[in-house]
Design a protein around this nucleic acid. Sequence first.
DNA 1: GCCTTTTTTTTGTGATCACAATATCCTTTT
DNA 2: AAAAGGATATTGTGATCACAAAAAAAAGGC
Lengths: 261, 261
Amino acid sequence: MMSSLGSTLFKECMRQQLQNPLTNLPRPVRSAELSVNQWVYQTLRQALLSGQIRPGFALTIRGLADVLGVSSMPVREALQRLGCEGAIEVKDNRRVIVPQMTPARLNELFSLRIVLETHAAEGALAYIREEDVRELERLDAEIDRAYKQGDMELGALSNQAFHRYLYQCHPFQVSVPLIERVWLQLAPFVRIAMEKLQRNYRIDRHQEALKAIRHCNAYALRRAIESDIRDGMASIQAVDGLEQYFSEATQVAVKPRLVRG
Amino acid sequence: MMSSLGSTLFKECMRQQLQNPLTNLPRPVRSAELSVNQWVYQTLRQALLSGQIRPGFALTIRGLADVLGVSSMPVREALQRLGCEGAIEVKDNRRVIVPQMTPARLNELFSLRIVLETHAAEGALAYIREEDVRELERLDAEIDRAYKQGDMELGALSNQAFHRYLYQCHPFQVSVPLIERVWLQLAPFVRIAMEKLQRNYRIDRHQEALKAIRHCNAYALRRAIESDIRDGMASIQAVDGLEQYFSEATQVAVKPRLVRG
DNA sequence: GCCTTTTTTTTGTGATCACAATATCCTTTT
DNA sequence: AAAAGGATATTGTGATCACAAAAAAAAGGC
């Protein structure tokens, strides 16, 4: 009796904890010119990019449609897109989860970031204008402010905005979508690692990058971007007890049911 | 009356010509364990990768569903996926076309290939075993055979298979999906450029790559892959009258209006 | 009590429908 | 005869439904 009740309570607690990230999702206002499909996609994408959905969390079409107040159709299409971007993993038993992380995959993803982003930065350099530098400085200040205030979501998103803005200065850019794909795969894990990082300040090499941009020094810019990414990777890997957040640790958190009336 | 009939005939002819690539599509047999969605996706993807659908060609959901003999639902989801892979372009006026090419984009895409594939090859090198080398040699022979027989589709697909197999030797590979995304964007244009290439033989650096692999020489392997890609790019750019296949040339096949009320 | 089997529920999939927006065709007007 | 306007057809979008597979829950046996 007692153990049964305890188990029920535990499961209920788990369910609550796991449901939270979806019910608390920030919903961007759906403007008229945005289709429901796009809105659902962007909502989920932003939630993943800011690390609000934990790895191993299971998503269901009906559950999401219910929470977001739309029919299943837009959710299906949004999940298709996220799935082919690697943001979510479609398992063979037709269940969709946020992918687990392994040390090897983490390594590979960071290596890819370095390769892609140094290339994108170098390609953009020739097109960066004075006003772009000012915008980058503004974004850099925003990052610092967010992390000083302990707002991890805003910090992560602003940091991505800084990098994205830099790379998109190249007018014929084709690598940003690939870079964002890598971010999408990293974000959920990086987020839970950052939470365990006690320090609420953050070091980045954005000033170094800006200096390289002002001097039009491609090599220095590449180095700054690479160092920026390596620093981030190092601070993630320095987290105490990181190993418990890899693959096996989260498998208890995999929970199929979302809710039903 | 006469002009009306003439116009109708002309349009019918145009329509036929434009529909052809779809009706002649090779349809892989749909095995039981493959969902209709996946089957449609792979069918379209393969058609794009082997360059059977020309840039500027407009795709419609109902049209594809009709040709493939399925309902519109699987087609919609497949188009969503292809769209987010950059294989097709979803225009603001809700029409879907195979993207046009511009010289700048072509350049960027080839640069990305070099960056991504040299990285992937180097990462894979340590994991390549004797049997993998044999498989690569087999694929290389298949490429030669296909091009000798003038089978461009098989040649393109086998060439991709060679590269893919090499990169996938790395067990924790995450870059192959990105590489394939770039291929998807290049393939339709490369195909029409290759058709204009009078020579029906092809030079590649695969033997050079295999030699580097046997010597476990990472630098040489990178150089071989880079040369292989650069050679391909050069032979594309050497095509006479290539400029007519960029953007504007195909605009008759594209719907004129871009803006929306 | 614990494990296996059966029943119930949930979920993904594919089809169909209604609707609004857009494009195409046809008529009318100048 | 050419341009403008309206009528018709086509298209994308989102909702709903039926069905089969799979998971969760319940019942039964050891």
